[in-house]
């Protein structure tokens, strides 16, 4: 092979490899939507699904009781008081239940917060339907404001039988003062 022919083929190969490099850089970012889609289909990360349910149309499973635990946490500056009105509840699949979370802004500034929910085990996430939740939208708190925020939920009758206890956790985050995608 002549020198210039070899240089040409070296250059072609290097450009192809640089192409793979760029493609893999893009792939790193493509993993983000792929991850979201994967989790949404499988419900693996406990984010749950948004589904319309009609309370009237659902029959109650009278023979089954499930324990639902409520957890709270805060990722906000200042010692926010944030806790559920009860820490656990015995529920029947198909029946509608309510629980409220109490939050108090300890700071002397107005703060807009967002609560992000997480359901554990992740495989239960697809079987919890929320009809009303303070996590659906951002919540604005005046300085020192305290208020009760309701959650109305139902456990699906199709909940796999091995799941006897489900925990629902809410974590408060600063909403960063911008409109983000609504939580589940």
């Amino acid at each position: 092979m002549t020198r210039s022919a070899r240089q040409q083929s070296n250059r072609t190969l290097a450009l192809k490899l640089a192409g793979i490099t760029l493609a893999m850089f893009g792939f790193g970012f493509a993993l983000v939507p792929l991850y979201e889609v994967f989790c949404e289909i499988t419900g693996l990360n406990g984010k749950g699904v948004n589904r319309i349910v009609s309370a009237a149309a659902t029959a109650v499973d009278d023979n089954r009781w499930v324990t639902v635990e409520f957890l709270s946490g805060s990722n906000l500056a200042g010692s926010w008081e944030f806790r559920p009105s009860q820490s656990r509840m015995r529920v029947q699949p198909g029946r509608l239940y309510s629980v409220s979370y109490q939050a108090r802004n300890p700071t002397d500034q107005a703060v807009t917060v967002r609560a992000v929910s997480s359901i554990a085990p992740g495989t239960a996430a697809g079987y919890i339907s929320k009809l009303e939740c303070f996590c659906f939208r951002q919540q604005r708190f005046a300085p020192e404001e305290q208020r009760m925020m309701p959650v109305r939920f139902m456990v699906d009758r199709a909940l796999p039988p091995e799941l006897g206890t489900i925990s629902i956790a809410y974590t408060l985050f600063d909403s960063l003062n911008r409109e983000a995608a609504p939580g589940s």
Binding site: Y35, C39, N45, F173, D174, L176, R178, A180, A181
Partner: peptide
């Protein structure tokens, strides 16, 4: 101001671990 790994903005910190270990 992106929220790849920020739960408040719809992101997920666990996703970082997946991509990092990939």
């Amino acid at each position: 101001g992106s929220s790849f790994f920020n739960a408040a903005g719809g992101g997920d910190p666990v996703m970082f671990q997946h991509i990092f270990w990939f």
